[in-house]
Amino acid sequence: MNIRTIITGLLLLTALICPALAAKELSGQEILDKSQKLNEADSRAASMEMKLIDKDGEVSKREVRFWSKGEDKRLIKFLSPADVKGVGFLILNADSDDEMMYLYLPAFKKIRRISGSAKSGSFMGSDFSYDEIGSTGYNDDYKAERLDDENGQFKLKLSRKDKSDAEYEQLIMWVSQEAFVPTRVEMYKEKKRSGKAYLELRKVMTAEKITKTGKYWMPFSITMEDVKKGHKTVLTMSNVKVDDDVPDDYFTQRYLQR
C-alpha cells in the first residue's frame, strides 16, 4: 500500500463520512429550511393529473395546469372534467397576511374574490386542500424539531406556530437526506375527548418518483390519503418546467380569464 493509495482512501472516506456528519449536526429547523431553500425554483409549470380513489376503489380523474413564480404567486387552470373546464384559480401574496385568491368562473364570465377560509377546502373534490396545492414550504407556519432518523431519512416533528392559521397542529415529516425533499408527512389535528386534548392523524402525504429536474429535486408523484375517510388522491406531474421564466403576466386577472 503506497502513500498515494492511502491518501486516496482517506479522501474517499472523508467524502463519504462528511455529509453524514454534516447531516447529523443539522437541527430540525435547519433541515426544514434547507428542504425549502434547496428546492425553491424561481418558477414552475406543470401539468397535473389527479386520480381520486374512494374507499371502494372507484377512480375519477382531474386534470389541471399549474404555474408558480417565487413562493407567492400561483395559477391553476382546470382542464377536466368538462363541468369545470376553463375554471381558473389565482393566488397572489400566498401564505402572507395580504394573500389574495381569485376564482374565474367561465359560465358566469366573472372573477370572484375568494375568502381565506376557503383555503382549507377540498381542491376539486380531492384530498388536497387549495392551500396544499402548489405550496412548497412549511417553515412559515411550523417550527421543527429533529427526531431520530428512520430508514436513512431525517425525521422531524413540526409544531404549528402560535400565530399561524395552518390547519394542522402537528406534522411528522420524513425528509430524504439526499434530495432534502419531504417523502412522507403525517398531519395531525387536535381533538378533545372528555376534556383531554389529543392529536388525531387526519392525512398522510407520500412523495415518490423523486427526480432531479434542472437544479432541483422534486417528486413526480404525490399521494394524499385522508385517513378518516379512507379516500386518497394520487397526483402525477408531467411537462414539468422549472426556472423557465414564466411571465409575470400569467399571475394577473387578465390571464386568469383567458
Binding site: M101, R113, S115, S117, K119
Partner: peptide, 11 residues
C-alpha cells in the same frame, strides 16, 4: 369593493 379580513370574505 371586495376583500377578505380574518379569512372572512366580504363585498
Amino acid at each position: 369593493l371586495a376583500g377578505s379580513f380574518n379569512d372572512i370574505g366580504y363585498w
